[in-house]
Amino acid sequence: MKRLIDILAPFVLLAVLLGIWEAACRILELPPYFLPPPSQVAGEIVTENALLFASAWNTLLMALKALVVASLLATGIAISVAMNQTMEKAVRPLAVALQVTPVVAIAPQVVIWAGLEHPDRAIIALATIVAFFPIFSGALTGLKASDRDLERLFDLYGATKWQRLWRLRIPSALPFLLEGHKVAGGLALIGAVVAEFVAGSGGAQGLAWRILEASNRLQTAKSFAAVIILAIMGAVLYAALSYGEKAILKRLRGS
């Protein structure tokens, strides 16, 4: 019974809040461009579902492509850098600089580099930059997190640099890498949306464009509908990555 209440509690709260919102809109007779009632937003999701889901799909694809590119780049660079302390010291400040650079500040230039006819490429590149750091940082930490006595054992048995990397460092880094990917997945999605906003072009046909388009036309309900779909997509992506992380770790450790 207690469990059931725990599961239901967030939904009940949500229903109450939506009820207050709905009631407020009706009682105060707010114009829909100012604040549409939730029923109207839900209606938009239903009637515009083909367009909204196609846009969501485009955004998700761009985010996932960025995640794959960021994963390959960050893991590859982290591994080659971790082999050499001087390299690591040289690269880390650059990576941090990239991390603290707001994506909106560099987006217009990246759009120009990618070519105005290819906004999707610019969006993927920008989302990649955002997703790069958590994976890179996790990989660097993980590659140095191997057990000290295991390292000694590898010394004792005369392991080569490559044996140490493949048999000790990379497997030890895996939990950190998975955690990094989980964080990076959400960031890639946000990065893709922000980048599409700044690109200000309908060429990529993602959710951000739906939001922009709808707000410009004062179709507030439709813009809210797009935001809600984005939120659900982010939550599902995070849940999927969390599940993948747990499943891989469980398989790895056998419990």
Binding site: D147, D149, L150, L153, L168, P171, L252, R253
Partner: peptide, 8 residues
């Protein structure tokens, strides 16, 4: 500690 590779 047993110092085993947990993944193996």
């Amino acid at each position: 500690a047993p110092t085993l590779m947990p993944w193996a």
